[in-house]
């Protein structure tokens, strides 16, 4: 078996467009996931029993089922949900990328929520008391005092989860989307270049993730308070 690298060069633009979509999913998933996840974390810690029970149930549900299952669910449910909202209950055809974005935000939020919650729990109760004693409203206390500390305390874990998210995006293969792996698969099937294509994407994923994990390691060493 000979590995033919020229096969890779000629399809590089197509692979690159796939990589771009992979990065887009990651960016949307991280941004949406952290925002929604933080809201879930605050809800889970809230004294309001109903709110906290809802957040807990949502987080545990998402963390108990495989991502592929969630991809299938959202792919099936989003047309119904949007139809119910805007089209008198008749399902609406929705682009694959929108459902994919929705999937990753909904799914990753559950994981980010648990990380952010661990961040809140790592803050001493005295900080909460200090916020109260200074008269800061709950909103101000969370935004300016508690959330920045929580995020900082768990930044390495957040980034590690983001590397996992980046790798997870490859699973959109199951609904035939054209991310990096999807693009490689389509070419591999057209040209019969399975070996070249899968080795190439393997190397690309590795380079991204390895670089990111080294960044995490460097951050961990730097993050202690006062070490600026």
């Amino acid at each position: 078996m000979k590995v033919d690298l020229s096969a890779v060069a000629s399809v590089a633009p197509f692979l690159l467009s796939g990589l771009l979509f992979t990065i887009q999913i990651t960016v949307v998933g991280v941004a949406g996931g952290i925002v929604f996840g933080s809201l879930l974390a605050v809800a889970r810690l809230s004294p309001n029993r109903l709110l906290s029970a809802f957040a807990t149930a949502y987080i545990n549900l998402m963390r108990s089922i495989p991502l592929i299952m969630v991809i299938f669910w959202v792919f099936f449910l989003v047309p119904w949900a949007i139809g119910w909202l805007v089209n008198h209950g008749r399902p609406v055809a929705v682009g694959a990328s929108l459902t994919i974005y929705a999937t990753f935000v909904l799914f990753e939020a559950a994981y980010y929520a648990e990380i952010v919650r661990a961040g809140f729990r790592s803050i001493s109760t005295g900080q909460y008391a200090a916020c109260e004693a200074l008269g800061l409203s709950r909103f101000h206390a969370y935004v300016y005092i508690l959330f920045p500390q929580a995020i900082r305390n768990v930044l390495p874990i957040l980034l590690t989860q983001t590397i996992i998210l980046f790798q997870d995006t490859s699973l959109v293969y199951v609904i035939s989307a054209t991310d990096l792996l999807g693009a490689a698969t389509k070419i591999a099937q057209r040209d019969g270049s399975l070996v070249e294509m899968y080795l190439t994407v393997g190397v690309v994923y590795f380079l991204f993730c390895y670089a990111a994990s080294q960044l995490v390691k460097w951050l961990q060493g730097r993050l202690a308070y006062g070490a600026r």
Partner: peptide, 22 residues
Amino acid sequence: ETFRNIPLLVQMFFWYFVLPEI
């Protein structure tokens, strides 16, 4: 580092599609 930094699905394809070829 190798096994952690490549997506599971890509590794799955490696064992299934690529390994028999090489």
